[in-house]
């Protein structure tokens, strides 16, 4: 049997609940996939968690979930079967306690879908199952029916935060206290959202996804601005920034500079890994040293922005990011009564 990719069918929900798609989620339990980099950007987690609670949607996190391990797979430090087994173990644990998993990180979302994709290869699937069998024999932790079987027949569904929020955009808008006051916003989708085909069936779904952030900016009362490097990589490049920083930061520099040159007030994105790369003060200093220009354009994750627009306290949205260039300035502009 072919393993499903488990992506939530948004079009089906839109058709079934054209007036109010939030109805689909009532009575369902949503699990937030914990991205490692949320440790640096807690507003990314809390932004969506607080919103879901305000919308009366049951939300949980899974204490048994590990890192998606994409970092290690991308550097050939684990095999395809090991990578799939790590993700399948996580999905098993989340399936045990939730109906839908939400992803705040392009990398984690891509990892889980890529892991599912590998299960289409019979040899990889067999090896993955063997690894999971060895875990069963260890018999560690809580036991439950079907524990660590590959999820072939499951109701569990996966969705990226951006797709989920876009589906519920009218509810999101209703929950806002502030608007963007005409701020100019450069949007960055990130490679593993923009280039991902594992969750799409048609060309139309590609094109639609390339407009969601721009549309959000307009709906929030801002002005989306076009820029040369809009679709380019943030520079992280599967850890190239760690291994070849000078080369990779050139990509980052070009992106930031391109957004600054068109007068953007900040860059908005749906991924904490891109956020880390584009905002890290040490990287900005290195770019200044190597490329001769200090760039100070602020960067914000969509979940953080929604938290700011909803009037959440600064402590809840961006507290750990005080060193991020000019972020408080944007926070103050938006939240000025």
């Amino acid at each position: 049997m072919e393993s499903q990719n488990l992506v939530l069918d948004l079009e089906k929900i839109e058709k079934a609940y054209p007036e109010n798609p939030i109805e689909f989620f009532k009575g369902k339990k949503l699990c937030l996939f914990k991205a490692c980099l949320e440790a640096y950007f807690p507003g990314v987690r809390w932004g969506i968690q607080d919103l879901l609670e305000a919308l009366d949607i049951e939300v949980v996190t899974c204490s048994q979930q590990s890192c998606c391990s994409g970092t290690f797979f991308q550097r050939n430090l684990i095999t395809r079967s090991q990578f799939s087994a790590i993700n399948e173990r996580n999905l098993n644990e989340m399936n045990h306690q939730a109906d839908i998993v939400l992803f705040s990180c392009n990398g984690c979302y891509n990892s889980v879908l890529r892991g599912r994709d590998f299960l289409k290869v019979p040899e990889v699937k067999k090896k993955t199952q063997d690894i999971l069998e060895s875990l069963k024999k260890k018999d560690l932790g809580e036991n439950y029916p079907g524990k660590y079987d590959i999820l072939d027949n499951t109701e569990l569904r996966l969705v990226h935060d951006l797709d989920f929020l876009y589906l519920l955009k009218s509810n999101v808008l209703d929950s806002l206290k502030f608007d963007l006051k005409g701020l100019k916003v450069a949007v960055h989708y990130g490679c593993h959202y923009l280039n991902l085909e594992r969750d799409k069936d048609t060309v139309e779904s590609y094109l639609k996804d390339k407009k969601k952030l721009d549309e959000f900016v307009s709906l929030f009362g801002g002005v989306p601005v076009d820029y040369q490097e809009k679709e380019s990589c943030c520079g992280w490049g599967a850890s190239q920034i760690v291994l070849n920083p000078k080369d990779a930061l050139k990509v980052t520099f070009n992106k930031l500079k391109s957004a600054e040159d068109v007068g953007a007030d900040f860059i908005l994105m749906p991924c904490p890994t891109c956020l880390y790369t584009l905002s890290k003060p040490e990287y900005r200093e290195k770019m200044f040293k190597w490329f001769g220009e200090m760039l100070d354009i602020p960067t914000i994750h969509l979940n953080e922005l929604i938290a700011i627009l909803r009037g959440c306290e600064e402590e809840r949205c961006i507290t750990l990011r005080r060193k991020t260039p000019r972020l408080e300035e944007i926070f103050n502009i938006i939240t000025k009564e």
């Binding site: 914990k34 490692c36 980099l37 949320e38 440790a39 640096y40 807690p42 987690r45 996190t61 204490s63 048994q64 979930q65 590990s66 890192c67 970092t71 050939n76 430090l77 684990i78 095999t79 090991q82 087994a85 790590i86 173990r89 690894i131 060895s134 875990l135 260890k138 560690l140 932790g141």
Partner: peptide, 27 residues
């Protein structure tokens, strides 16, 4: 996780043991 001090609770030790089991013989 790949970072120290994850947001929320740390992964229980028996789950960490499982990760080590999965990664047997890996680079």
């Amino acid at each position: 996780t790949v970072l120290d001090n994850p947001l929320g609770k740390e992964l229980p030790q028996d789950r960490v043991d499982e990760l080590n089991e999965i990664c047997n013989f890996a680079r």
